[in-house]
Every structure is written in C-alpha cells, then in structure tokens.
Design a protein around this nucleic acid. Structure first.
Lengths: 197, 197
DNA sequence: GTTAACTGAACGAACGTTCGTTCTAATGGA
DNA sequence: TCCATTAGAACGAACGTTCGTTCAGTTAAC
C-alpha cells in the first residue's frame, strides 16, 4: 500500500486523500450506527483528524452524506452498462445482472446503508436525489429485459429490483446455509418471473 | 364517540386513554421524522401533556417504542389466522393474504414505520424482538402455502413477504395510476411464483 | 509572505432524563 | 356522610451530555 519513495505527493494530492479518508471513515460509522447516531466528532476521530479540520474539507454533515451517495451511485455504473449493452429481452443478461446486483446488496455494508437511505427518503424525500436518480436509471435499463407478459413492465422491473435488494438485506447476518438458501430461492423466483412462457 | 353522560370515566380509564393518546402521538411523529429525530418534548407536545408527565406514563423513550411495536404486531393477528386456518397449499389463501398484507404495507404510516424499523434492526438487532418474532410467525404460516417446487419453501416464503412489503413501500407517495400498476404487477408476479406448474 | 491545513476550545441549541412540587381522584375509618 | 390520608397524574425547571457548527490561533507548504 505505502510507496517506497517517501513524500512524493503534492499538497493537492494529500488533500484529496484526506477527503477520501474522511468519507470512508464516515461510511464505516454510518453503516455501524446510522446517519443520525453518528456525530461529527465520531467521524473526525475515526478519520484521525481534528473536529475543526473536518469542516475545512466538508461544509457540514450533509455534504459528507452526499459524497457517500455519489460513490454508491458510481458503483452501479458497470451494472448499468451490462444491462444497457445486452440484447433486448435476453433473460440471460437479466439473470447475470441479478446475481451481480444481489452480490452487492447482500454485502453487510451496502445492505445497512441502503436500509438507512430507504428510511431517510421516507421522511426527507428531496434528500434522496442521487440515490433515486440512479434507481430510475436501473429500472429503465431493467425494463427492456422484462417479457411483455406483464401489464406494466416498468412496475415489474421496479419490483424485481426491490426483491433483489430485500433478498440481499435478508441474507445479512444469517448463517452461510441460510444465505445459500436465500440466494437459490431468489434465482428460482426470478427465473419463473422472467420466463416468457 | 363521546358519552352523553359527562364524566363517566374512572381515573384508571382516563389514564389508559392518556397512555394510548401518547402512543398515537409518538407514532405520528416517528412516522414523520423517525425514531431518533423525534424528541420526548415533541411527543409530549403532540400529546398535549407536559414533559414531566410523559415519564409518569412511560419509563423512557424505549418503552414508548416497545408499546408501538406491540400494537403493530397485534395488527398482524387476523392475517396470521387467515393463513393458519386455510387448507394447505391453497393458492387462493395466499393471494388473499397477499392482498390484505399489501394493503397494510402500502399505507403510508406502516410503510414509513417499517422502513424505520428495518434500518434500526440493522444497527441494533436485539431491539427488534417483537418485530422479528412476528415476522417469524408470518413466514412459518406462509411456508405452508408455498408449492414444493422450490428448494427451500421457507426462504421462498421470506422472499414473498419481502416482495410484498417493498412493493407496498414503493407505492407510497406515487400517483394513483402508479399505485395501481404496482399492485397489479405484484399480483401478476405472485401468481407466477406460486402456481404449482 | 501568502495561503491552506490543522488544532481544540467555545458556542448555542437540543437531547433524554430527573427533580421537587402541586393538584386531584380514590380510599378507609369515624 | 364526612374528613384525613394517600397514590399517582400533571407540571415546568433543571440536570448533565451531546449535537452541529464556528472561531481564533498555530503550523507547514508553496
């Protein structure tokens, strides 16, 4: 991880690194305790900097949360490309997507964070900007792969997404055996849902 | 609602009414702002009583939350009876249950509250006692109605429950047209999932 | 020498809870 | 039936703590 040649970084580089360090520290705590149970002092302590300095890098708590939301969104980019480049209504692409998306959603960090975000959006809808727009893109891309046996492919795409997300959340913290069962059941269900029959 | 004869209530009655009034006030605020954004002063104000008096009725915030959790659980009782009394693997009962459960989950109050609870359980698992045990009962009752084409009926039952819940949440705050689409899509999906074919 | 990074003290507001007090409905003996 | 006693409902000030944010002052890079 550490470079052999010491101190090769310019000042701007180090500042950028600090920023990222802060975001990672904040994310760790948000996952562990939630947005509103995590204080600015906690974040500063976790990042190993002073409280005052934290405000040199971020205007406030909301800006840290926004930074995390954007990182989350950017992690979806490869998956979006997968769906958007695949031929229309190829069920193979959808299953492939489902597995990849499930893998993301069932990681403890992402599961806890997305539960946090869902709850937050309910009481503060305009705060979910980045999150909701990413979700819209996901639904749009997914929609193309839903067979037209459904009265609304868009609504179905949304539900498929919901199902994968919640399945991932359910798997967190359970035994390895349960996790396998959930994953298998999810794929069985999805297979039945998207088969064109 | 009000008795014609004035002042017929005994002291114990009035106390019980107060307790319920407090719980309702707290639930209103929890739904609106979340557990941790709602203060004891807010609850007291919403209930129209003093801060100090609030502590005559409840030991603390956690006890108010517990009271709400129990009410939520008791609302599931009729649905549990429906599933448990129906003949095994009757898909009709499952669809009937799904509609009823969806109706509950798609009400704005329940949707917001359950999002709040899900997020809370992630960071404080032992706090979800009543909620999780009710959920276990639901899964157990639902399991009997899942066809044995799945490798794990229990896991499938859990996912079906998740799907209905999230569908309900998704519908909140959208247009009436969207709500109808989501409901229809949900039933279409469920029909495919549980048909014994 | 100018600018940015950095520090910890300090701010006012809000938090959950406890406190002493007053008031009132219920109770039991006379 | 009356009155003294009592349990608990009601109140609002105050507790100690934590919150997000600001600020004067110091250090180090350019």
């Amino acid at each position: 991880m550490a470079e052999n040649r010491p101190e090769k970084y310019t000042r701007a580089d180090k500042t950028a690194q600090r920023r990222q360090l802060i975001v990672e520290a904040a994310a760790t705590l948000f996952i562990l305790k939630g947005f509103h149970q995590t204080g600015m002092r906690d974040i500063a302590g976790e990042a190993g900097i002073s409280l005052g300095n934290l405000y040199n890098h971020f205007k406030g708590k909301h800006e840290i949360i926004a930074a995390i939301a954007e990182i989350e969104a950017s992690e979806m980019e490869p998956l979006l490309n997968l769906l958007e480049s695949a031929p229309v209504q190829g069920s193979a692409a959808l299953i492939e997507f489902a597995q990849a998306y499930y893998a993301i959603c069932s990681s403890p960090e992402n599961a806890a964070l997305s539960a946090e975000i869902v709850a937050e959006i309910f009481r503060n809808p305009e705060a979910g900007g980045t999150f909701l727009s990413t979700r819209s893109r996901l639904i749009g891309a997914l929609e193309r792969h839903i067979p037209d046996i459904y009265s609304s492919r868009k609504a179905t795409a949304g539900l498929v997404l919901d199902l994968i997300e919640r399945a991932g959340q359910s798997a967190v913290g359970t035994s390895a055996a349960s996790q396998k069962e959930i994953r298998t059941s999810l794929l069985e269900i999805l297979t039945r849902v998207i088969e064109p029959s």
